[in-house]
């Protein structure tokens, strides 16, 4: 029997750049699991994959864009969202998904996250939160919970963790959800829903990093993390985001927290511009900032 006969075609394969597999991710890492849910969500939708682009920053999760068989953009550290903003503005037909990690999106890129949510830029942002800087070898992140150990916090971190859904909600995102790498079916459904929605959509996914976060904090391997997520998770759809803080060892509140309607940036721009948009240019006046031409 040859190996080809054994091969059963998995529809997800079409969405992956097969010539890039295997991935760089460690055994037990949750990123691949999230990608599986994402691929299924994409396939289950009536979405033109030719018009779908994926943008990442830097880090382990930043490699997701490069494994997807879409228009893939692997940008600089923290700047996936502004790149994606440019892509969307210059071609509004595109479905633009940002897929990156917690450090990339919320720390070095935190400002962009806030402002894209505030603008309600029509982007879907997936944040894989492994609570640590993994690509660089296990340093503390803004999301490292409590006093957890990392290579840069050998005595434990001295600062509290960021509650990402709360800030994204406060900044104005129209959709905010959180799942863990254990909740593959729920995640797929939420992603499918978010893909269809317009505006700034944000999904946080807790994901184990057995190589750094779990090991540094004696939390076992990837499987142990799944058991832990199962045990500690509590589904609370519509939960106020100020209650979604991730306390070490405490409850992990998951679910779809925010789902509201808000005019997205481009829609609002077109509405406000009205006849000032795409019209044959009228006569230009070279006015000065002062002088009679303005005040008269």
């Amino acid at each position: 029997m040859s190996t080809t006969e054994l091969h059963v075609h998995n529809p997800v394969e079409d969405l992956l750049r097969q010539d890039r597999i295997p991935t760089i991710w460690c055994p037990g890492c949750g990123i691949g699991t999230t990608v599986n849910s994402f691929a299924h969500a994409l396939l289950g939708q009536d979405i033109d994959l030719k018009k779908t682009a994926i943008v990442s920053g830097i880090g382990c999760s930043g490699r997701v864009s490069g494994y997807m068989n879409l228009d893939s953009f692997h940008t600089t550290h923290g700047r996936a969202i502004p790149f994606a903003t440019g892509l969307k503005l210059a071609n509004p037909e595109l479905n633009v998904i940002v897929y990156s990690g917690d450090g990339d999106l919320t720390s070095i890129g935190g400002n962009h996250l806030l402002h894209a949510a505030r603008r309600n830029m029509d982007l879907m942002v997936v944040c894989v939160n492994n609570m640590i800087y993994a690509m660089t070898g296990g340093q503390a992140a803004a999301t490292t919970p409590g006093a957890a150990n990392s290579t840069t916090t050998p005595y434990g971190a001295f600062e509290p963790e960021l509650n990402i859904p709360q800030i994204v909600d406060a900044a104005g995102a129209c959709f905010v959800a959180r799942w863990t790498a254990f909740h593959v079916m729920q995640l797929e459904r939420t992603m499918a829903k978010a893909l269809k929605k317009k505006g700034f959509r944000f999904i946080e996914i807790l994901s184990p990093c057995p190589t750094y976060f779990q090991r540094k904090n004696n939390m076992g391997d990837g499987l142990a993390a799944m058991v832990d997520y199962k045990k500690r998770s509590k589904i609370k759809n519509g939960c106020p985001t100020w209650e979604t803080v991730l306390e070490p060892g405490g409850e992990i509140i998951v679910g779809e927290f925010v789902d509201r309607e808000r005019e997205d940036y481009l829609t609002r721009m077109r509405r406000q511009l009205g006849s000032n948009y795409t019209e044959f240019p009228p006569q230009m006046e070279e006015h000065e900032s002062e002088g009679c031409s303005k005040e008269c």
Binding site: E288, E290, G291
Partner: peptide, 12 residues
């Protein structure tokens, strides 16, 4: 002073 339109005058 600002508002007298000196820039526009120079511009003309």
């Amino acid at each position: 002073f600002g508002g007298q339109g000196v820039i526009l005058a120079a511009h003309i």
